[in-house]
Design a protein around this nucleic acid. Structure first.
Length: 746
DNA sequence: GACCTGCTGCGGCATG
């Protein structure tokens, strides 16, 4: 038999099990891809941890599973099993299809296990725990809680743990949960299991290593596929909103903030953008990202009616997290089929790995949330060889008045978009914030471990959760304070022998299915003005009394924060017009802000802008010079100053807190710190902050009212809450360094 | 005023 893949060319192919080789032949593959080639020697012996980083089209799944299945077939007594963990149910369903076809002839079962899978199918794996188990972190958590005593049997023949879309876990409380679960699986089987991470988007490999195996990150074998060097075509288009007076008039017409965003104020510009999308996108498969669900709905509706008006079949489908599964699947099916042409108007739901076919253009309306996200979105486009990835970005700006905010004067949205695209083309994207403590998830893991084992001692919990490396930065006093706090809140009780058991509240929470997720939806605060509700607001910035916030297109001052009732009492604040650009609520990285300064300082034109965008950029640059921002970091009057740090939000948020700590009223508005003092006082305060010792976060965070972010934060002792908050949301050291630099330069 | 992800066990009833 002559084979398309010959053993003389590939020693890796030769090492695959004959049945696996048969499958490769049956696919008609002429060779193994580079990642697949390298993965065989790394994985076939099941003796080390491996990260496979390769673009979506490079066959990562096969790279991992061809050698893994070879190992299972070569050593079939006792029959081995693989634990595959995925962040998405949809991805599990996709992979189940692929792996089932691969495993058909190998007589290895492939079992999908997530919330939509029937209990009877799950039983199949428990009765005969072999083959591949595809599972979510939450379902794995549920196994620990509900079947703790049967896990040693179910897991005893595990040979590998595979984590798909590794990047999606790094830096979040869900990622912490996953790390802890992997550790607990190994603890159940009594030995380390090879961990295999798969991803397309891993920037700094050291972070991915540290995530996959915190205690032995340096021993991990990394397989990085050569990038395709794909061509990128970009156009940024600028659009001008209607004059400001109309907005003000309309605002006064209806003061309630939560009914407003889609009135006539911006729809003229939006209609122009929709018209352009319709013209250039129809006839192909595309993805359109307007950043917000509400906007997704608006554009999907507008594009559909444009089709109807022209008497042509609709090609535009909405897709976001609030839509039913059925509606989302309609959009996914239309994209996958690709004929007739179909485009999705979507949120981040279509960023991750599920297979949606070949995409021609990615349209970004408004600023992308991050370079990493933009990169992920573009990874969906131009995936056929020789086809470029195409990005069309649409930026809206407002006419300037003498009341305009600095953000508008500097065309923040446009400039940030340009900066992000430039960084993207250099290959840079934001590293995940992997240093978060996520003490919230430690509370969950304590309760889960207690449920799994039917009670656990303090020493046991310390060993399996903290000494094991999952929550390595938690100190002994912190851990004891955490357990004490959990006792006070009736989450746990201690019996006479010292064993920790679920308390009354703990029992109730553990036995509800909500327990299995480590994350929760954003806490929303209601804004009250004179006892009347202005609407509700998910609060992502640290909040102190007296601080100013923007809501519903107006400025407010915080008078009181009630954490229990989730209410913020406000009064109107004076000041100019609030800016157009709201930064999406995403945290901007230091590097992006520095690049924004570069964009503003340069004088050469930018090749990928249309003429309107180019004119807006020229305007921003001339305002930048007129404001003196080329030379000075602090501008303003005797009573108000603006500090341009050109740093990201983790740094700026921290610097704002430090300035307030030394008595300077201050807020982080994104591009600037707005300070309620003149330049001289501000400079003096920066000098003080530049000399601060921030090794103890407690004094600095003393007055922050809203540090509760993650699911179990409410159960933490205040000192640990401060540490966990600072670790995930602030860059205090960078703030001190920035203050020192600014005070030296000025 | 970003966005997204995920979820058990068991009783009761109908059906083959």
């Amino acid at each position: 038999m002559s084979s398309p893949v010959s053993s003389s060319e590939s020693s890796s192919f030769e090492r695959l099990h004959p049945e696996v080789q048969q499958w490769v032949w049956s696919q008609g593959w002429t060779s193994l891809r580079d990642a697949q080639e390298w993965a065989v020697p790394a994985l076939v012996g099941a003796d080390r941890d491996v990260i496979i980083a390769a673009s979506t089209a490079a066959g990562k799944t096969e790279a991992a599973f061809l050698p893994i299945l070879t190992n299972l077939l070569n050593n079939s007594e006792p029959a081995g099993a693989v634990l595959y963990i995925s962040p998405l149910k949809a991805l599990i369903n996709d992979q189940w299809d692929r792996l089932s076809r691969l495993c058909e002839r190998l007589e290895l079962p492939v079992v999908a296990w997530h919330g939509d899978v029937a209990a009877s199918k799950k039983q199949r794996f428990l009765k005969s725990p072999k083959g591949i188990l595809l599972i979510t972190p939450e379902s794995l958590e549920a196994l620990f809680v509900n079947r703790g005593s049967s896990l040693p049997e179910a897991f005893q023949n595990l040979r590998y743990i595979v984590v798909d879309e590794l990047h999606a876990f790094i830096g979040s409380e869900r990622g912490k949960q996953l790390q802890s679960l992997m550790q607990r699986v190994e603890s159940v089987v009594g030995r380390a299991l090879p961990r295999v991470g798969l991803s397309a988007t891993l920037g700094e490999m050291s972070l991915a290593r540290k995530f996959l195996r915190p205690a032995r990150a340096d021993d991990i074998t990394v397989i990085e596929s050569k990038s395709s060097g794909q061509e990128l075509q970009v156009q940024v288009r600028g659009y001008m909103e209607q004059p400001m007076q109309q907005l003000v008039a309309e605002y006064l017409g209806h003061a309630s903030a939560d009914d407003g965003a889609d009135k006539e104020d911006t729809s003229g510009t939006k209609a122009a953008i929709a018209g352009h999308l319709y013209k250039v996108l129809r006839g192909h498969n595309n993805l359109i990202f307007p950043n917000r669900r509400q906007e997704v709905e608006w554009f999907a509706d507008r594009l559909r009616s444009l089709c109807e008006n022209d008497g042509v079949p609709n090609e535009f489908w909405p897709h976001h997290g609030s839509l039913s599964k059925e509606l989302r699947q309609d959009a996914e099916r239309a994209l996958k089929a690709g004929d007739p042409p179909a485009s999705a108007v979507c949120t981040t739901t279509l960023e991750l790995g599920i297979d949606i076919g070949n995409i021609r253009t990615v349209a970004q309306i408004g600023c992308p949330p991050s370079v990493a996200s933009l990169r992920q979105r573009l990874g969906r486009s131009g995936r056929r060889p020789g086809e470029p990835a195409m990005l069309r970005a649409y930026c809206r700006e407002r006419p300037l008045t003498d009341q305009s905010d600095l953000s508008d004067q500097l065309r923040e949205g446009l400039v940030q978009t340009i900066a992000m695209i430039r960084l993207l083309t250099t290959g840079w994207f934001e590293p995940p914030r992997s240093g978060g403590l996520h003490a919230s998830t430690l509370v969950q893991q304590c309760l889960s471990s207690i449920a799994q084992l039917g009670g656990a001692s303090v020493v046991q919990l310390w060993g399996s959760l903290i000494a094991s490396g999952s929550f390595a930065s938690v100190t002994k006093p912190d851990f004891l304070a955490l357990l004490k706090g959990m006792g006070e809140k009736e989450l746990i009780v201690q019996d006479s022998s010292g064993l920790l058991l679920p308390g009354e509240l703990g029992e109730r929470l553990i036995n509800h299915y909500e327990f299995y997720t480590a994350f929760t939806s954003d806490e929303e605060f209601r804004l009250l003005l004179d006892g009347k509700s202005l609407g509700s607001l998910p609060v992502s910035k640290p909040l102190t009394k007296g601080q100013r916030i923007i809501f519903g297109g107006r400025r407010w001052q915080v008078q009181d924060v009630d954490l229990e009732a989730k209410v913020i009492v406000v009064t109107p604040a004076r000041g100019g017009e609030p800016p157009q650009f709201d930064g999406l609520g995403a945290q901007v990285d230091d590097r992006v802000r520095l690049e924004m300064r570069n964009v503003l300082m340069e004088t050469t034109s930018c090749p990928f802008l249309d003429k309107h965008a180019q004119a807006l950029l020229e305007e921003a640059r001339s305002n930048f010079r007129a404001l003196g921002l080329g030379d000075a970091a602090i501008i303003g009057s005797a009573s108000v100053s603006h500090v341009a740090t050109w740093r990201g939000d983790y740094t700026n948020d921290a610097l704002a807190l430090l300035l307030m700590h030394v008595g300077i009223q201050c807020e982080n508005t994104g591009l600037f710190l707005k300070v309620a003092f003149g330049g001289e006082d501000t400079l003096r305060a920066l000098r003080v902050v530049g000399q601060m010792d921030i090794s103890d976060v407690e004094p600095v965070l003393e007055n922050v009212e809203n540090m509760i972010r993650e699911k179990w934060d409410w159960a933490l002792p205040r000192s640990l809450l401060m540490k966990t908050f600072a670790s995930s949301h602030l860059d205090l050291q960078a703030a001190v360094n920035t203050a020192r630099l600014l005070s030296l330069e000025s």
